[in-house]
């Protein structure tokens, strides 16, 4: 009797959301799957032809390669930088203020900093000014005149923006993990004569496995939003090292190439689904 009533309540509370998700996401995604096997205009059945086309498409391959490279560079870097800030912060009383400062970029609208990015990274911008001054001061190198946005360096500009924006988020997550470790554990280690480094190595890090998976997943989610910076600074067709999947999808959308878009959406969706499931499996094992 109890259980029956709860089934009803569950459905009642969930229904509005589930109906919306069905209408706006799930059903249309089935449609996209169907379209991925059809021609764009006439809707003729094509089998896996569209998939074949995108896997021989230069732009798609370039975008996939760049996106993977970006993810593989950024996420480990962000995870590490976050941990390196969070570990000393967890011991400080002044942590609150410092944490706020690191979090602030999260609140800064992308559009507001685009002009600043240009002022910093253009050929005669602040970064080159600083490097040139430094070179002149130490005498180690001459004037630096790199155009960061027009060369392969643009990739690293994007990496830097990503770190700039997301370090605070990661620090908060790491800190939450560190503070959740029972104090008795650390106390016991200290009594046994473990120094700071030893307690980090043997107590703190092993206890942060759960946080680690979370942070990886959320960093990944946020990594797709780097498109905003990339698009606002460099437009729809940026320097080829930062031509990401997001650019490609957008350009296909503008050109109404829905057949390719559908096939690519299905592929990316499946890969992400697999990755999420794998991480979740690993995560569940940490209990």
């Amino acid at each position: 009797m109890m259980a029956v009533r709860h089934n009803g309540s569950f459905v009642m509370f969930l229904l509005p959301s589930l109906a919306g998700v069905m209408v706006f996401v799930l059903l249309p995604f089935l449609d996209v799957m169907k379209r991925s096997m059809q021609t764009a205009v006439t809707g003729e059945f094509m089998g896996v032809k569209n998939y074949d086309v995108i896997f021989h498409n230069q732009a798609f391959l370039l975008a996939v390669q760049n996106t993977i490279r970006f993810t593989l560079v950024c996420i480990p870097l962000l995870v590490l930088v976050g941990l390196m800030v969070a570990l000393p912060l967890s011991n400080l009383k002044e942590a609150g203020l410092i944490k706020s400062v690191y979090l602030f970029p999260l609140a800064m609208p992308t559009a507001t900093i685009v002009l600043v990015w240009k002022m910093v990274f253009y050929r005669q911008g602040f970064l080159n000014l600083l490097l040139t001054k430094l070179g002149a001061y130490t005498g180690w190198w001459g004037p630096v005149m790199v155009d960061y946005l027009g060369t392969g360096a643009s990739f690293w500009v994007l990496v830097a923006s990503y770190l700039w924006k997301n370090t605070g988020y990661t620090v908060v997550l790491w800190l939450a993990g560190i503070l959740a470790i029972p104090n008795e554990l650390l106390e016991a280690a200290r009594v046994d004569g473990a120094g700071r480094w030893k307690s980090i190595r043997y107590i703190i890090l092993p206890n942060l496995k759960g946080s680690f998976y979370t942070i990886v997943i959320l960093s990944f989610l946020n990594s797709f939003k780097i498109y905003r910076e990339a698009y606002l600074v460099a437009g729809s067709y940026p320097q080829e090292d930062i031509y990401l999947l997001q650019h490609l999808f957008n350009n296909w959308f503008v050109n109404m190439e829905f057949d390719k878009m559908a096939a690519a959406a299905v592929c990316v969706g499946i890969v992400l689904f697999g990755a999420i499931m794998l991480l979740q499996r690993l995560w569940d094992k940490t209990d």
């Binding site: 998700v21 249309p28 995604f29 449609d31 996209v32 989610l221 997001q246 999808f249 959308f253 959406a265």
Partner: peptide
């Protein structure tokens, strides 16, 4: 099961669902 589905949907980037949203 539904909850896991919701988590996956939360993690899908806009670009993957862009075409489906457009169709609706």
């Amino acid at each position: 099961t539904l909850f896991v589905l919701y988590v996956v949907l939360m993690l899908l980037p806009f670009q993957v669902t862009m075409l489906s949203s457009y169709l609706v």
